[in-house]
Structure formats: C-alpha cells, structure tokens
Design a binder for these strands. Structure first.
Lengths: 172, 172
DNA sequence: TAAGATTGAGGCTTCAATCTTA
DNA sequence: TAAGATTGAAGCCTCAATCTTA
C-alpha cells in the first residue's frame, strides 16, 4: 500500500483471496456442522443455540429480548425461531407479570432432554471440524480476532439504535 | 486433555467459549457486510458472489455446475439464485448446444455494470470490517485455517457423492 | 412517545423429488 | 441408468410495519 494514495476501495489479489477463502471455509464448516447435528439429534444449529442459552439461564427461562442479546440475534429472528420451537414442544411462551409488554421464553422438559442429547452429540463434531482443524496458535488468533470483530461491530449497532431513537424523536 | 481418556463428546469451558465467540463474530460480520453492500449498491452477498465469479469467467458465462463448484454451493442453490437474478436482469440462461442437458449462465450488460459498482462499493467494507480488524499474524492464521477447513471438508463431500453413487448402483 | 414483542413479505439455503437428455 | 439441472417445500434470517402496554 502506498501511503497517501489510500486506495481503500480496491483490494489486492491476496486480500481478495483471503476473503474468498474465508467465505468458502465458513460456508462449508457451517453446513457440515448443521448436517451432523441434524442427522444425529434432529435439531438445527439455530435451535441448538436457543436451547443452550436457555439451559444456562436461571429458571431455564429468559425474556425474549434477553435471549436476543445473549445470542446476538435480532428480536424478530428470536420471535420467529421461538414460534417454530414452540411447535416442536421445546419451549413455551408465558406471560410476564412484572411487565405486561414482556414475554418469558421457558425451556420445557422436552427441550431439556433435547439439549442434553444435542450437547453430547454435537460436541464431537465441534471438536472434529472446528477445534481439531486449528493449531493452538491459530485458535488463539481466531479467538482474539473474533473478539475484536464483536467489539468493533456491536457498539455500532448500539450507536445506530441510539441515532435512530434520536431521529425518531426529532421527526416526531 | 488427559490422553487415553479421550472424552471427545465433551468440550472444555474455554473450548465452548471459543466456539460461541466465533459463531457470534461470524454472524455480526456477515450481517454488517450484507447490510453495507445492500445499502450502497442494492445487491446481496449471494448476488455479489455470483457476479464476481461470472465476471472472471471466459465469455462471462459458466455452466450451472461450474458456477456451483466455483462458489462451493449446492446446485439447487445456484438454480434458485440464478432465477432471482434473472428476474433482476443480471444474468441470462441460455441453452448449451454441446450438451442438451446443460445450461449456460451468462452475465448481462446490466450485470456487468452492477458488479463493477459493487466491487468498488464493497471493497471498502471488506477492508474496514474484515481485513482491518485483524493483525498480519491473525490474517496468516485465519488464511491457513480456512484452507485447512476446505481441505478437510471438500474431500468428504466428494467421498459422500461417490458413496451415494455406489449405493444407488447397488440398490437399483 | 417509547419499549417489548410479533407479524408478513421476501430473499437465502437445503433436501428430496423430478424432468430431460446422454 | 446416470448426469445436468430445476422445482417445491420448509426452515432460516432481515426489514418494515404493527400491536400492546408503560
């Protein structure tokens, strides 16, 4: 890179390569893990994520918004996902007495059984395809980078929400 | 890990952490990049992938299967995506004289314009959120690991297909 | 008005089934 | 029969709009 020229709107060939290799690896890994989990336990990655978070929650229940924060998901995604999982009997929606606008998402007995089965079944795949494919150095680098990405992007989301609120305020 | 004990169906807390951190970073990054591309150029990541590959192809066209291989996608995904992109005027399907079963996916003039615009618009975001968030060491580690993942999983897909063909042979 | 949450539409992605040509 | 490709169904995911309660 030539300083001052700052051609940020162009990528070098090796930069493109890194990007495309990473995107491809990403997709293959996600697909392989999803297939394995589906085949061995009959649940999806998305369901797995919800189940694991709820299992660790006090009383095995969370407010919809808390669940969204814990997973880093949009609220509407949580809502749709919970609807599907309610149909499968893994979770239940219950009213929140403390706040009439709120909803509790509660793990059912069936959901508890499913998550235990899934954690056992899926741990081997995560080790096999994710952990075992990286060296200790790579694991450290990937962990540090992932954290950096989260710290980079999450504040932007918060800032965007704040700005939206301010704009809404001004416009209204 | 205690050798011999080999409890591969259980993950240590720090292994779970790495997995969950990585999944979360993944999602945030993909969302941020997709939003930026959509906002700046009106096309999606999936469309971007197809356009870039076709632009580099001889005659700006590829057989459907070649496109799938180049992207690492399933054939049916390519078919659905091409249908949507045909509706937007970015690509055209044309018959293949050499093989009556085949289909050419051809970039249109409109598609060519779109990909140039998108590459300019998107390169900055890829630099900002992907390349600039990692150190040189991390970039090397992530590149090496991504390659390892691809080399690990792609042969399995090929093997699965071969087995399926053999099974189909035996069953029929 | 704003916060918590849901809904509907539409694009993304996979699987299984199918259609056509080799 | 097999290869190349498409289709339909169903789950995943986001955005914009909406509904209800604070």
């Amino acid at each position: 890179m030539i300083p001052g020229m700052a051609e940020t709107r162009t990528l070098e060939p090796d930069e493109w390569d890194l990007w495309r290799t990473w995107v491809r690896a990403q997709r293959l890994l996600a697909r392989e893990l999803d297939r394995g989990l589906q085949r061995d336990t009959g649940i999806s990655q998305a369901e797995f994520g919800v189940l694991v978070v709820l299992r660790d929650a006090p009383g095995r229940k969370l407010r919809a918004g808390e669940l969204a924060d814990a997973l880093g998901w949009e609220k509407s995604r949580v809502s749709h996902q919970v609807t599907r999982m309610e149909n499968r009997g893994f979770v239940e929606r219950t009213e929140c007495e403390a706040d009439g606008r709120g909803t509790w998402i509660q793990l059912t007995a069936e959901g508890r059984r499913a998550v235990l089965r899934a954690m056992r079944g899926h741990a081997g795949d995560i080790r096999r395809f994710f952990l075992d494919t990286m060296t200790a150095d790579q694991a450290a680098a990937i962990g540090a980078w992932s954290t950096a990405v989260i710290d980079d992007i999450e504040p932007r989301c918060a800032a965007a929400e704040a700005e939206l609120a301010a704009t809404g305020d001004g416009a209204a």
